[in-house]
């Protein structure tokens, strides 16, 4: 698979009065065409920031301090605003967490779809409207011809997220950044939305960067998964391998916290302690204070991603020799 998106040694900093916070530290990964990459981790692990950086919408004072982001071989992290704007929506779509607040309450969904289509293509208003109705059909909104003129508040949460997906996919982008697309929804709706996103992207060959803290969603959807911890990638690899046979002690612990239906245990396993704040990341491996396998090297030297067989993990347990 040719790499569609390449993120290379990405580093995101927040300058503050008490020094610079490193929110994303030396993160590298690739997404192939049509591939679904899941990104999991706790809140504050840097997964959303990484996604935001890819679409070029980091809010100042946050900034990309080092590294490169390339889309189809073209570097996009240092583009002028106007150049990047043309890529957003057209080549990289985005779906955010809260469908209730993602749509402008004052405009009909049709108007929001049409304006997005017309921004990126030179369709006539009539054709753009026809396309908008077609899109609403495609995301499973009944009576799309009528619903197109309705306002966001006239849709339920699940329906709104369908509209958001239609907006993200309306000019067939190569990649969709889906940042917690189901977190704000009812559990019963979540599966529908994920299935929809997955189906549409498969049909159009769109790659997804699926950011979530829900391992269940990842297991169902992703081809590969990247586990993030304290701004770094702890482990990255095919989804089956990471779930069944996680190599990094953190991802192993994370998988242990998923309830299994035929498990007799009363309590789920949990990882002791909590993720360090960005100001208090320990030297060496960021996970070392919580890790059951810590040895001297973990406290001094920072592990890079290294091969563990199928997956790649940043853990000294897998250092050659």
């Amino acid at each position: 698979m040719a790499a569609l998106l390449e993120v290379d040694h990405l580093r995101i900093e927040f300058p503050t009065r008490r020094g610079t916070l490193l929110a994303v530290d030396d993160v590298s990964f690739q997404i192939g065409e049509g591939e679904v990459l899941g990104v999991v981790g706790e809140s504050g692990a840097g997964k959303s920031l990484t996604g935001t950086a890819v679409i070029g919408l980091l809010e100042p004072p946050g900034r990309i301090a080092a590294g490169e982001i390339r889309l189809m071989g073209r570097r996009i992290d240092n583009l002028p605003y106007e150049e990047m704007r043309k890529i957003r929506g057209k080549q990289i779509g985005a779906v955010f967490q809260d469908p209730l607040t993602s749509l402008n309450p004052l405009y009909s969904v049709g108007r929001q779809l049409i304006e997005t289509i017309q921004t990126h293509t030179d369709m006539t208003p009539t054709r753009a409207r026809a396309r908008a109705i077609e899109l609403l059909h495609e995301v499973g909104i009944p009576a799309a011809e009528r619903r197109i003129d309705h306002y966001p508040h006239q849709f339920s949460g699940g329906m709104r997220q369908r509209v958001v997906i239609a907006l993200a996919l309306c000019v067939n982008p190569k990649l969709v950044i889906a940042d917690e697309p189901t977190t704000a929804l009812d559990v019963s709706i979540q599966a529908q939305i994920i299935a929809l996103l997955k189906r549409l992207c498969r049909e159009h060959g769109t790659a997804i960067m699926l950011i979530t803290h829900d391992m269940g969603v990842i297991a169902e959807t992703a081809d590969r998964v990247a586990v993030m911890y304290a701004g770094r990638i702890a482990e990255i690899g095919p989804v089956r391998s990471v779930i069944k046979d996680a190599k990094h002690p953190y991802s192993h612990g994370l998988m242990g916290s998923i309830p299994k239906i035929n498990d007799e245990k009363e309590r789920l396993e949990q990882i002791e302690g909590s993720m360090p704040r960005l100001t208090e990341i320990p030297p060496g491996c960021a996970f070392n204070p919580r890790c059951p396998h810590t040895f001297d090297r973990c406290r001094i030297e920072r592990p890079e991603l290294m091969d563990t067989g199928v997956t790649r993990a940043s853990c000294w347990l897998y250092a050659n020799g």
Binding site: I55, L57, Y81, R85, K86, I87, R88, G89, K90, G93, A94, F96, D98, T101, S102, L103, N104, P105, L106, Y107, E115, T116, T119, H120, V164, L167, A168
Partner: peptide, 26 residues
Amino acid sequence: RADYIKFARARGLTNRAVNFGHALKN
């Protein structure tokens, strides 16, 4: 700061459309 402004930018709308069409009207 609203989400729909961030989303409008993520859709690649022009600054003009975001600032005057979406933000000002709200």
